[in-house]
Write a protein that binds this DNA or RNA. Sequence first.
DNA 1: ATGGTGGCCACGCCA
Length: 271
Amino acid sequence: MRLIVTSWNINSVRLRIDQVRRFVETVRPDVLCLQETKCPDDRFPLKDIRAMGLPHVAFSGQKGYHGVAIASRLPFSATDVMRFCGKDDARHIAVTLGAEAGAAAGITLHDFYVPAGGDIPDPELNEKFAHKLQFLDEMRAWGRDARPAHGPAILVGDLNVAPLETDVWSHKQLLDVVSHTPVETQALETLRQESGWIDAMRRLRPEPERIYTWWSYRSPDWAAADKGRRLDHVWVSRDLDPALRSVEVFKEARGWERPSDHAPVTAVLEL
DNA sequence: ATGGTGGCCACGCCA
């Protein structure tokens, strides 16, 4: 069977629910993982998403900030949220696909929203950057202790780190810009490799191809300037590596009216 | 070197 999985930082699921619908109608993902839903659970647009043909929905939100959700055509057998850094931030949710999911049954999907980290890349001067580094450190410990990549598993999300030189428009100019500093890129690559995850985008589209998933709102002509970064990721466990067929950035959504600053990333697996 | 835009929700915080 074909499994289509999308990760998208939507930057308010209520404001952009029509864009979610338009995307789902166009790409028809089996599983849609959202970040920055920015709404409390009692205001989550559950009926709208179910009406898109994604009846199984798990969400973890809070007022104003953060928030993650997984909407699926296939039923879940389990859902779970993890907390990091001793905070109540809604930055992770996971589901395991149920027995009715055919060849996809038993796959666990982790949806992450890693802290952006503020502007100053110094943990002594900027507690948001310290928080980001601690979050990555706890992700590393989780990978080591829980071994999530040692079963059929997929990790997606806005990891807020562009790890490779060709994941940013200018490696040199971004070396001291939060999201591409060596301490972050090394932390992310180390935790990924240690945990056994495969970077699906780069497996199928290796360097030196440049891949971006995010373009700042602050660039008036974002498409022409094309000063993007690859902040959104799809990782798969080793046993799913042979199933990978394609990974695409749906850049056109960044050009829609009142868009999210992130484009959806979609992976196709043949199970 | 600086400021540029956008969403939450109602003031500044966060990205």
